[in-house]
Simulated assay, not measured.
Amino acid sequence: MAVTIKDVAKVANVTPSTVSRVISNSPRISEKTKRKVRQAMEELGYLPNFKARSLANRSTQTIGLVMPNSTDKVFQNPFFPEVIRGISKIAHSMEYALHISTGETEEEIYEGLVRMVQSGRVDGVILLYSRINDNVMSFLEEKKFPYTIIGKPYLNSDEISHVDNDNFSAAKEVTKYLLKLGHKRIGFVAGSLNLMVTLERKRGYESALLDSDITINNDYIVHEEFLREGGQEAISELLSLKEPPTSLVVADDLMAFGMLNTLDEMGLRVPDDISIISFNNLLLSEVSRPPLTSVDINIYNLGLQSAKCLIEKIKQPDEPAKRIIIPYKVIERNSCKKLS
């Protein structure tokens, strides 16, 4: 026999109307009561009828944003405020609000997404990352809930709406740029191998080396968090090698900033002692010392197009999936040097 709102109300010792208000995330209900009702829902295995509620309420006019990490880490990286700025531009023009979900672990991120969808708080979701074998994406697919990804889906990319750069080509281009400057010992620093952006850029880097008949040295490939501290740890590891690289492809400007700080403390100079080229072309890239050569991936437009894509999906559920590739541009500055 199906579990009803009355069953949940009985276990939580509240009225059925209170359960309904918790499901709709009413601000009139205290957080303590919300937790008690949600715990009862979980114990009973109760799932609200979202389709029926959507028909009754028409729309929440809210978009959910799912972050790849906790807020204290996510907002250290200027990529996320900038991509949210692009999303906000479209959301505001279409009278949509934003609801942000984060978590310390993949499990917490998944649980937050499930609560957000099951409570009927949002009409659709934008994932601000793309992971391999992601439970969040699997849940959204199973529920046939509208969503868009910033990044390339791991599987079935033709069937899932997403907005991305051609990260393979961009990484290959900047690696070839260093090769033309005479560098052969080229390192690669990026984030987790669970992230598609890392895999695509690593693939491009390796392709450029293989095209030039250069053997891939796994000691030159380092994976850290997309944070300043990640760059600091990566450069320390690479410089401890018996024969360290003469140049680096770094998958995030924030990591590169961390490298510049560490190199300065060690008395080493960019580009005289090591050349660095990175990604994102953040505002600080232009004013860092030295100014960083960086790939402008047009972060703002990634956000803007993802919001457009999602709202179209919400309004026209039967529309086919869209694949939007945002052009990139290499901005040359002073962090790379030709080897004599």
Rank of each mutant, 00 (worst) to 15 (best):
P290L: 12
S212Y: 12
I274W: 06
F145G: 02
L283H: 03
E312Q: 15
T215K: 13
I331D: 09
L284C: 11
L227P: 08
R323N: 14
M196F: 05
L292T: 01
L263K: 00
L179P: 00
R333M: 13
I5L: 03
M1T: 04
V66K: 03
T175W: 01
P146S: 12
D296G: 02
Y328D: 08
L248G: 04
P291N: 12
Y110K: 09
D164S: 15
R323H: 11
G120R: 10
G191D: 04
V295P: 04
C309Q: 10
I214F: 04
S161Y: 14
V8C: 00
R58N: 09
N217Q: 07
F168Y: 06
R53N: 11
L155P: 04
T62R: 11
K180F: 08
S278Q: 02
T18W: 08
P327V: 02
S236Y: 07
E319S: 13
N298R: 12
G191Y: 10
V222P: 05
M266P: 00
I314Q: 11
S340W: 15
E173D: 07
L128I: 13
E142S: 04
K89N: 15
S212N: 13
D213H: 06
Y96L: 10
K315Y: 11
T198Q: 11
R28S: 11
E82M: 12
I149A: 10
S17N: 03
A190K: 03
L128Y: 14
M137S: 11
A91F: 07
S192L: 03
V174C: 09
S88K: 13
Y205M: 09
I109R: 15
L210W: 04
Y154D: 11
I324Y: 08
T15I: 07
R333E: 12
A170W: 11
R323Y: 11
V249N: 02
H162E: 08
L263E: 00
L241E: 07
T262K: 14
D272C: 02
T215N: 13
G187H: 03
L98V: 06
Y129D: 12
L199C: 12
S240H: 12
K143F: 06
G112D: 06
E141C: 09
L268S: 05
R28N: 09
Y46C: 01
G204I: 00
E42W: 07
Q232L: 05
E332N: 13
S192N: 05
R131T: 01
S17L: 05
E229Q: 12
S20I: 05
Q118T: 03
K51F: 15
P81V: 04
R203G: 05
